[in-house]
């Protein structure tokens, strides 16, 4: 199908984006890579009155190591995340996003702002304790990833705010495992294991409306449990919904297995 008509603004600065969004009174949308937004428009599930194209704003496309973290500009394409070597977990996660043509255009800021419950980068953001730099009418603020995702496709960002960058802390050990029906599909389950400051986090995507920490499984590991025991705890504590891609027990089993594999990759809890 074809999109409904909209006005188009090619913004040259973040200030202009915020201004246009504010003037659109909640009816404006940011167009970054367009790999999630344009299908939604084409299927007419959304009909924004104005699209603000941010692709040509200078200064948002850099990847910079910064102490114990890596700063990623909002316009960094997934293909560049795959290629960079500063943050190996980010590179591995980005490899799993869609297909080559999608990774060539899709952006880090866009993926996080879109907040798809099955997308890879939101899970990595929560798993690493990332922070988003957000620009709005009253200035710039930082938002922790765990405060960003409210529900499926819903974030705590205001309608006139824009993510300009993301700061992903570097875990000392990490593991990433994903299960999808076909290569490049959205994940049924994504498991991200990170060790940050000696504490192990287990974060799951695809099992709830937002990326979810497996708190019981983390506790099992903290108490000296094995990866297998933690995987079982993770499978037990989630409450996945069934759809045509998989029943709830199937998703539970797959989630446990993805946690086991991610922990094995991280070398955590191995017997």
């Amino acid at each position: 199908m074809k999109c409904a008509p909209f006005d188009y603004v090619r913004a040259s600065s973040v200030e202009e984006v915020v201004k246009v969004l504010a003037e659109s009174d909640g009816d404006g949308k940011i167009l970054a890579g367009g790999q999630s937004l344009v299908p939604v428009l084409a299927l007419r599930m959304a009909r924004p009155s104005v699209l603000v194209d941010v692709n040509r704003i200078p200064g948002l496309g850099a990847i910079r190591p910064s102490g114990d973290a890596v700063e990623v500009g909002a316009l960094v394409r997934h293909s560049r995340l795959v290629e960079q070597t500063n943050h190996p977990l980010l590179a591995e996660a980005a490899r799993w996003i869609g297909h080559t043509a999608i990774r060539a255009r899709g952006t880090a800021g866009g993926s996080v702002a879109h907040a798809d419950p099955s997308a890879e980068l939101p899970v990595v953001a929560v798993g690493t304790g990332a922070t988003a730099t957000v620009a709005g009418p009253s200035g710039v603020r930082s938002v922790a990833a765990e405060d960003l995702f409210l529900s499926a496709l819903v974030t705590s960002l205001d309608e006139d705010e824009m993510i300009t960058g993301l700061r992903f802390p570097l875990p000392t050990r990490w593991g990433f495992a994903e299960f999808a029906r076909r290569h490049g599909d959205f994940a049924l389950v994504t498991a991200v294991v990170t060790e940050l400051g000696g504490a192990v986090r287990i974060t799951l995507g695809g099992v709830a409306s937002v990326p979810q920490r497996a708190a019981h499984a983390e506790q099992v590991l903290a108490d000296g449990g094995t990866a297998r025991e933690a995987a079982r705890a993770a499978a037990d504590e989630i409450d996945p919904t069934a759809d045509l891609h998989g029943s709830a027990p199937f998703r539970r089993a797959i989630a446990g297995e993805m946690v086991r594999r991610a922990l094995a990759q991280a070398g955590i809890g191995q017997e």
């Binding site: 367009g34 790999q35 344009v38 084409a42 293909s79 043509a101 999608i102 255009r105």
Partner: peptide, 13 residues
């Protein structure tokens, strides 16, 4: 120089 899905890009872009 990069592959793109021409249905996911607007001509103005």
């Amino acid at each position: 120089g990069e592959p793109a899905r021409a249905c996911l890009m607007f001509a103005v872009q």
